[in-house]
Write a protein that binds this DNA or RNA. Structure first.
Lengths: 157, 157
DNA sequence: TATTGTTATACTCTATAACTATA
DNA sequence: TATAGTTATAGAGTATAACAATA
């Protein structure tokens, strides 16, 4: 599975590989399609997917800086500026000056933001949960089991 | 895991759930972040991710119509028109009139397209394969095993 | 009328480059 | 000089709506 010595993809595919793709290619294709559908289906809470993720992170991890949020969600700082601006405009987070470092900004969740999070918990994952329910039990178990590994893959580095 | 009766997410999280998220929420977040990174990292072959996927599909499955490609990749027909146009401009696919149905179009791969596919096979998955290699063996196995299930999830309906 | 595909248009998301302020 | 954040700008990717051609 190394990049330097990739497996021979012209070999006969195992029965588990859709259309003869390698597992890595299968994973890549699936992630790209699924992300497109997730974005389009909307979170269900009316918040763009990344804004929703950022709000959830501030909720779970407490006040933090735009820079740390950008690194955590793997977006560039200017993108995070825009996301935080949008959340602030909606009254879901607050931007305060950092107590000791004048360059930094503290992003905190507001009461409205917390209420929003609690109210929309189920909505955010409803569409995906419904899709998963349509798979057979073996696939459902497999995905449930693999979720943390996929999370670690996504947040490497 | 149903949407109608979602699990109680306020319950104590299992140790496998990052930051106390449900598996579905974990899966959702991971897919969104990973897709952003995959797109930005580029396929490695210089082709936008979706174009790469479409070209690969035409290569594997033979001549087909824009409509079928749109349904297979879960994009809207006008988006597929643009993708096929771009591939055609690069000489990687050909658009021909359907032999019997004047409304349809046949999209086929060209010799250049086939050469491109074969030449860039490894490149397309190189970045992801490298990331996977950095995980521990248990996670690697888990993801390899779950890839087909994720593929089925992505292409439901 | 229904289906296939395209054109025209606009929006969402994210990036890079350049800048400001603070350390 | 280095770091944190923002502003300005641009581009990729995708969608919806309206249309044309064919069935």
């Amino acid at each position: 599975m190394t990049a330097d010595a990739p497996r021979d993809e012209t070999a006969a595919p195992s029965s588990a590989d859709p259309a003869g793709l390698s597992e890595v290619a299968t994973l890549r294709g699936a992630v790209l399609v699924l992300a497109r559908r997730l974005r389009h289906q909307q979170a269900g809470d009316g918040l763009p997917a990344t804004e929703s993720a950022v709000l959830g992170r501030v909720f779970r991890e407490g006040p933090t800086s735009p820079g740390r949020l950008a690194r955590a969600e793997h977006v560039q700082p200017p993108s995070m500026t825009r996301i935080v601006e949008s959340l602030e405009r909606q009254g879901l987070v607050r931007r305060d000056p950092h107590p000791t470092d004048g360059r930094q900004v503290q992003v905190s969740i507001t009461a409205d933001g917390e209420e929003f999070i609690e109210r929309s918990r189920a909505l955010r994952t409803a569409w995906l949960a419904r899709q998963i329910d349509r798979l057979d039990p073996a696939d459902r178990e497999m995905l449930t089991a693999a979720a943390p590994a996929l999370h670690r893959l996504a947040h490497l580095e």
